[in-house]
Design a protein around this nucleic acid. Structure first.
Lengths: 194, 194
DNA sequence: TTATAATTTAATTCT
DNA sequence: AGAATTAAATTATT
């Protein structure tokens, strides 16, 4: 249907705003005050394959590191590690951003792709947090929905708690809320009342 | 580990107190489910004076009413009762708005002043909820922790602001505070200081 | 009034 | 998709 296609297209075009692309870390010494710095893990392609198949290794490494250093691990930020790394094409580096705050280590995984190959460094270097991340460890900007929007979601939920992508695009277009937000809303809504 | 298992078991067994079972459903007609209705409490000026001096009476009445009816009291909405009633000049009626929702009674005190005198009714009537209404599952009972308990929490927090379930159970067993309260305490604590 | 316990909900991680 | 958890924001109590 033309209308549906239009709705999907609108949604896809609007996705970019909702999913900011993580930019490569900037090289600058002035931003040390933000307390983020990078441990650049240089790994070979073979090792990358290993990492792909054992995506929990890095996470476990961090956990062990924490226990050795006698510090505590905060919640992990960044994308889900396994999927994220798996989806990357030929990553050469995997960066772990650390932030220390009150005896807690927050870590943030960033997979770098081949674009950064020539800039790659083989030893840890100090970096700032990429632009996709907030100053806080987790980039969590809470969307506040209006009563009308919630009421509309609610109606749609009563009709169908499991809207498919096209339906979500329709809702997205009507309410002006990005489709991923709508998916999250329905997930949380199901978790609460189903 | 045996000790840990023991701690978890203790916590689970103590949960019942913290998670009261919801009362049996009301035998209510459908029209009550989503509406507010009023119990117009007609009281004389003398009784009003009484109420002014014992502002907790009405609140307690509602509590007893709830316990008699076998339902749970939602959070009180509207102004704080004592202040609200005290500030009113010569009230003739005191209205209690009730709302049933999910086996919970929400009540809202409204002091009506002389403007509504002629409209006063002596029998319950259906009303809409005044602004400021909330929807919540149960009345909020604020736990007050002793200095020792807070000090202990504090120590644990300094060591690890993100205790996992087992750790929380340990803290729970030591302090005698239910595990969910401990989780809330750490959440609030993190929100304040991390 | 302030401090803080409790609640709600969007977002995130992991399975 | 669901379970568990977290942060953010708000509400309400002492």
């Amino acid at each position: 249907m033309d209308v549906e296609l239009d709705q999907v297209l609108c949604t896809v075009l609007s996705l970019e705003e909702d999913y900011p692309v993580l930019s490569p870390p900037l090289r600058s010494q002035n931003h040390l005050s933000s307390h983020f710095f990078t441990s650049g893990h240089f790994i070979s392609q073979k090792e990358t394959q290993e990492a792909l198949h054992h995506s929990a290794i890095l996470q476990q490494t961090v956990c062990e590191l924490c226990s050795i250093l006698g510090i505590y691990k905060g919640p992990q930020t960044g994308k889900r590690m396994g999927q994220n790394i798996t989806n990357m094409t030929n990553p050469l580096y995997i960066y772990i951003f650390f932030k220390f705050s009150k005896n807690v280590i927050f870590f943030h995984f960033i997979g770098k792709n081949s674009d950064d190959r020539q800039n790659g460094c083989k030893k840890p270097r100090v970096e700032t947090m990429p632009s996709g991340a907030q100053s806080s460890a987790r980039s969590r900007k809470k969307t506040i929905y209006s009563n009308e929007q919630i009421k509309f979601f609610q109606n749609q939920f009563d009709c169908n708690p499991y809207p498919d992508f096209v339906s979500r695009c329709r809702i997205s277009q009507i309410t002006g809320i990005p489709e991923p937000r709508i998916q999250v809303w329905f997930q949380n809504r199901r978790a609460r009342y189903l």
